[in-house]
């Protein structure tokens, strides 16, 4: 009975929190509420017996997405924009925003569509909500039980944990494309040439020794935890994504605390690190094609070995990619000096 109450509170809180995130007056409150939303979602994954997703959500949600948003909001709000280059329309909006600025550093930006648009919008969206609600409540018993099929073929998949089997064997083509998305995101972000955009400066350089101490303490622990999650992926919740996300968050911490000067080491070192996971996965996928006739169809004998090799390289690439996405500045080409970069990629 009590667990029902736990679920009811959590399930009710999520939509209300989502509503508050979008309707709060200022950006900081919205982003911090969003971080709380991410945490509650991670708890709901735990309740829905999905520890793999809870791991990924905790690592990516708490570790990276929150930091990404805060970094961007810092970039947007922190520095006064020189009005010279703004067109007149935007200056008027900027003035309006300055006028109703409440307390320091809190950008107020309640710029919404006119009221009649909002009204006209609520009717179809409510109808959609009701239809989806009705559809969700009246789900029939599905004709096909993929859960049974997955567990029947589990021992042929080379790993013991269901989710890892689906990710890296049954539906490994999805995972291949998904790693492609990560690589694509880094290239797209770099093509924006954000190098000239100054990252939010460290607001305080005095209070850093404590942070440096913490990061130096956490670095070995996070690498060990990353390795543990990667190794455990075959038998219990864990795997390349969760390990990569934890190491990516480590990269974020290193960059934030200034131990690794952004942008990370320039030249091809970082690019190879980013592309190696995808290249290895694609290479092994096509190599086995020649042996067994279908793309990504691992020969039964060496399935486990191949999956572990792929997961190792995936972890390195995912970690580097998530850290590079946070830094958002492409490695400078002309900068000669070889930054000291004990990026975890080179170590693990």
């Amino acid at each position: 009975m009590l667990s029902l109450f736990f679920d009811a509170v959590l399930a009710l809180a999520l939509p209300l929190l989502a509503w508050r995130v979008l309707t709060t007056r200022d950006l900081y409150r919205a982003v911090i509420l969003f971080i709380a939303f991410g945490l509650l979602v991670a708890l709901s994954w735990a309740r829905l017996d999905a520890p793999d997703i809870a791991l990924a959500e905790a690592a990516i949600g708490a570790g990276l997405t929150g930091a990404l948003f805060l970094n961007t909001v810092g970039g947007l709000v922190g520095r006064k924009r020189s009005p010279s280059r703004e067109s007149d329309e935007s200056r008027e909006v900027a003035e309006r925003r300055e006028a109703i600025q409440s307390s320091p550093g809190e950008p107020v930006d309640e710029v919404m569509r006119p009221w009649w648009v909002r009204l006209a919008l609520t009717v179809p969206i409510l109808a959609l909500g009701l239809a989806l609600g009705w559809a969700v409540v009246s789900f029939p018993e599905p004709a096909i039980d993929l859960a049974q099929q997955a567990s029947d073929n589990l021992e042929a998949s080379g790993v013991d944990h269901g989710v890892t089997a689906v990710l890296l064997n049954f539906r490994s083509y999805d995972t291949l494309l998904e790693i492609g998305v990560l690589l694509l995101a880094v290239v797209a972000v770099w093509s924006l040439d954000l190098g000239r955009v100054r990252g939010g400066q460290a607001a305080l350089s005095k209070g850093l020794p404590v942070l440096h101490g913490l990061v130096r303490l956490l670095t070995p622990i996070m690498i060990i935890v990353g390795g543990y999650l990667l190794w455990a992926g075959a038998k219990q919740p864990g795997g390349a994504f969760q390990a990569g996300a934890v190491l990516g968050a480590l990269g974020v911490l290193l960059v934030l605390s200034g131990l690794v000067r952004p942008p990370l080491s320039d030249g091809s070192g970082l690019r190879i690190g980013l592309a190696v996971g995808f290249a290895v996965f694609l290479g092994i996928g096509t190599a086995v094609m020649l042996a067994t006739g279908e793309l990504l169809n691992y020969p039964p004998a060496s399935t486990y070995g191949l999956i572990i090799i792929i997961e190792l390289f995936l972890t390195v690439s995912i970690a580097l990619t998530l850290a590079a996405l946070f830094v958002t500045a492409p490695p400078r080409k002309e900068q000669g000096s070889k930054e000291h970069s004990e990026e975890k990629g080179e170590e693990s």
């Binding site: 607001a203 005095k206 209070g207 404590v210 956490l218």
Partner: peptide, 22 residues
């Protein structure tokens, strides 16, 4: 132990930032 360490650091940082933030 980890929560202790990161909690203390976070509290310290927030306090420093708040003080400098006026």
């Amino acid at each position: 132990l980890l929560v202790l360490a990161s909690g203390a650091t976070a509290a310290h940082l927030v306090a420093t930032a708040a003080l400098r933030g006026g």
